[in-house]
Amino acid sequence: MTEAEILEGSLTAPPRLNGELVFEAPWQSRAFGVTADLVESGCFSWEDFRIRLIVAIDAWESTDVTERQSWDYYTCWVSALEQMLSDSTLLDSTELDGRAVAYADRPHGHDH
């Protein structure tokens, strides 16, 4: 996807109604909700998280257009959350990798 196509895509048909869905997929709402819960229970602040979100977004924007995946805000969000969890020693990245690999390996129909 070229820069021009990205520009065309989201600005020519911006959602104009108030009633738009807040989340486009359940995992996006879980990622948001988990982050909000961690903030509410004092594990870190929104500002701590925001700093990492800016880094994650910047990393996508700095990657060559031919190398990067199409833009997805919540992918950046999850990446920032992983960094936050690792930095705050709440969750070790190796442990998370292990669980993610295990989940990815589940046969279809056994993923709930």
């Binding site: 995992w27 879980r30 594990c43 969890l85 969750l91 669980r99 989940y103 990815a104 279809h108």
Partner: peptide, 24 residues
């Protein structure tokens, strides 16, 4: 079909781990 790096899988994994640890 499924990539362990996909944000969907990562999110499920991190939520479950945080719940198991009693953090979330």
């Amino acid at each position: 079909q499924i990539d362990s790096r996909s944000p969907e899988v990562r999110t499920e994994a991190l939520e479950d781990l945080l719940v198991e640890k009693g953090i979330v």
